[in-house]
Computed example of a mutant assay.
Amino acid sequence: MREYLKELTEIPGIASREEQVRDYIKNQIENKVDEIFEDNMGNLTAFVPGKDPSKRLMIDAHMDEVGFMITKINDDGTFGISPVGGVDPRVVKSQRLKIEGKITAVVNSMPIHLEKETSKVVNYDVMKIYAGFSNKEESSEKVNLGDMVTFDTSYLEKDHYALAKAFDDRVGCSIMLDLIDFYHKNNETPTYDTYFNFATQEETGLRGTGTAASKIKPDFAIVLEGTTAGDNPENTPDKWATHIGNGPVLTFMHSGLVLNKEIFEKIVDTAKNLGIKYQYKMRTAGGTDAARLAKTLYGIPAGVISVPCRYIHSPQSIIDLNDYENTFILVRELVFKTEF
């Protein structure tokens, strides 16, 4: 388990630029599933036949991470960036970035000796990204408008914790790869025909999953996510959405959707029967691809199961690896042993 998590989180891949993530996943699942196909939005779907082919189950996780694009090349050789997805500018100041996964850059920051107003938020329109170039002509030879920019973060594990960028939603992608490995290595068969969909462009409007579902035509779906913890040391428990270490997060409602009651209760009952620690998402901000599925075709019912991530959408997000493992155990039971 977790064989793929390190490499997945370190690959760059913002919305619409998921190709490196998709190629990595495709290489891992070739010869392990019965069919692999892509669509015009770049979604990658792997099919595994089930014991009961009368129903189709879609397991979904998105490949894209939050990040930036180059939107300006300045005369002094620095760059301007705009966010792709929700990135708080407060977590960007002084950070190390990668342009197209190759060129190292750093975000400007006024030293405290010159800037006494330390509570001031530096917005994107005044950020400058320095990559060692001296002028516009030099930087334009290496970097183009529209180039992808991501946080430059190396994966780290210590005890039962892991730190990385892009846990949202590479944890979901990693769990799906673990499930495919379980199918391949143990000769297990899912309850229903199962489609593992690695989706695109979730962070910019839940765009990829609906296209994939239109081809798959599932009867129901389970969306796997990395979700907000909110258990920052400065926050009181009443402000927590979830808590790392308290198990998989089960969502009954989020922005834009109240989840299907029957699927939600099936997920809860399965977690109880397994005897694993689980928790509910206690704040409803944020959305998932389940909201898109509800508006696709005939309205596809879905459940959402997430791994809680502290400092989500930042260069240094933290998960508890026990949460990851229990999420895998819960989803494995739902896919291979449960009837809906």
Rank of each mutant, 00 (worst) to 15 (best):
R2L: 15
E3W: 01
E3R: 13
E3S: 06
Y4A: 02
Y4S: 01
Y4P: 00
L5E: 06
L5M: 10
K6V: 00
L8G: 02
L8F: 04
L8R: 01
T9M: 04
T9A: 03
T9K: 00
E10N: 07
E10R: 05
E10T: 09
E10F: 05
E10M: 12
E10Y: 07
I11V: 09
I11Q: 03
P12K: 01
P12W: 01
G13L: 04
G13E: 05
G13R: 03
I14E: 00
A15R: 08
A15W: 00
S16H: 12
R17A: 00
E18P: 00
Q20K: 15
Q20G: 02
Q20N: 08
V21C: 08
R22P: 01
R22L: 06
D23Y: 03
D23A: 07
D23N: 14
D23K: 09
Y24E: 06
Y24D: 05
I25S: 00
I25K: 01
I25M: 05
K26L: 11
K26T: 08
K26W: 09
K26R: 14
N27S: 14
Q28Y: 04
Q28D: 03
Q28M: 13
Q28H: 02
I29C: 10
I29S: 11
K32P: 10
K32V: 12
K32F: 10
V33D: 06
D34I: 04
D34Q: 15
D34N: 15
E35K: 15
I36W: 07
I36D: 10
F37I: 08
D39A: 08
D39L: 08
D39F: 04
D39T: 13
D39S: 11
N40V: 13
M41S: 11
G42S: 14
G42E: 15
G42W: 12
G42T: 15
